[in-house]
Design a protein around this nucleic acid. Structure first.
Lengths: 216, 216
DNA sequence: TGTACATCAGTGAACGCGCGTTCACTGATGTAC
DNA sequence: TGTACATCAGTGAACGCGCGTTCACTGATGTAC
């Protein structure tokens, strides 16, 4: 249902595999180049799929990346957060909550960096990708995090806690993406920072900005 | 001298104007589209310059954006910081210093957002652009800022002040760019935030992360 | 001041390559009776 | 269980458009004597 508007869903197992091969091929090729730089023919060769077969499923090349995005989002939704998880999260301290979320964020960005880079670059010029992103599971998780953090409102020292939490999340997400996804090309050579350290520092920044002082 | 390697500098006033027209044309077209999306012919039509004239100056299309970058960087170097300015900056409080720098940053990003967006997108896939950026005046200003901040080392509460300052700058620059340059498309609709407010909050985040407590 | 020549600057029709896409076709799978 | 037909799925040669670039040329400016 959240798949591309003009994309016909496969009816047979055979074509479902072809689709999977296409998306896999694209994902692997994205490691080296932008979506724009990769030609259809190249994707098709990698996936061992013929041109006609592709255009039977997708209206244009541009429909392919959104489809990959959807698959990823579905995957995220698959590991649905249970009621139990939510209860558990609610019982955590603000520090614990932050540590867990930021830890996951860094880990995920690291694992899927190529894919995230491609989507981020593509979204900058394709509005439909942006709206897709806004309805994504990822965004939903951010909202969940925000409300969980706001349950510790008494420890937040900022004139407008709601706004502050939103900006704090924006801040760590932007920084994390810039660092992990974009600033680690061989040419960038900005300061080195292990993921462990990055996580710790982002946590520190998050809590400090919200004006949270350690409990003694 | 810092102009593109294979780019021939103009010898006559006439061609210097042509060059300027080309760069102006590109800069204005970047407001709506990516560099990749803009064709040479379009730039030439806008600048009222012929194809041959362009290729007499530039080896390829890709040499044009770096040239625009250089012009901008030269402009920055033009308004050189005098000894007096430095003295003055040194006499400011940490809060004053931060306010000034972040204020300028937000203002500049706002003014030149299209151009910055183009460069950021292009740099992601063209290494030569990255090295250019690293030797830029902008980077140099960041380093200057870092060392000025470190003169207030006694007010910084972080196990590794040097590293912390570097990351703090990275943090505010990344966030500012993400917000001003990328997150304000009509489709993005993330939370609204005036430049004034953004500046204030980034300042708060910067100082809080460094563990600076207000002087009483 | 004038003439000859070299260099700089500019012109735009034409080229050719690469890419996304089309199309006429064959083969595989599912369904009805 | 077998046959007929509809639909789904896959094939790859060929097309054509748009783009960056070339090239043979004309005109303007600077320099030497």
């Amino acid at each position: 249902m959240p798949s591309s508007p003009a994309t016909k869903p496969p009816r047979q197992a055979r074509s479902r595999q072809t689709l999977a091969r296409l998306l896999d091929a694209l994902e692997s090729l994205l490691a080296d180049r932008t979506f724009e730089e990769i030609s259809i023919h190249e994707i098709l060769r990698t996936a061992q799929v013929s041109v006609g077969s592709f255009y039977a499923r997708f209206p244009t090349k541009d429909a392919l990346l959104p489809a990959l995005y959807d698959r990823w989002d579905q995957e995220l939704r698959g590991r649905a957060v249970t009621k139990k998880d939510q209860e558990e999260a609610r019982s955590l301290s603000l520090e614990g909550l932050t540590a867990r979320f930021i830890g996951n964020m860094v880990k995920n960005q690291r694992r899927r960096r190529w894919f995230i880079r491609a989507v981020a670059l593509h979204a900058r010029q394709h509005p439909q990708m942006i709206t897709r992103e806004q309805r994504s599971k990822r965004r939903q998780l951010h909202r969940q995090w925000a409300s969980l953090v706001l349950e510790h409102r008494d420890r937040i020292n900022h004139p407008d806690p709601e706004e502050a939490v939103a900006l704090a999340i924006f801040l760590v997400v932007s920084t994390c993406r810039e660092k992990v996804v974009f600033s680690e090309s061989p040419h960038a050579s900005s300061f080195r920072l292990s993921d462990r350290k990055l996580t710790a520092e982002l946590q520190r920044a998050f809590l400090a900005y919200l004006g949270v002082t350690p409990r003694q």
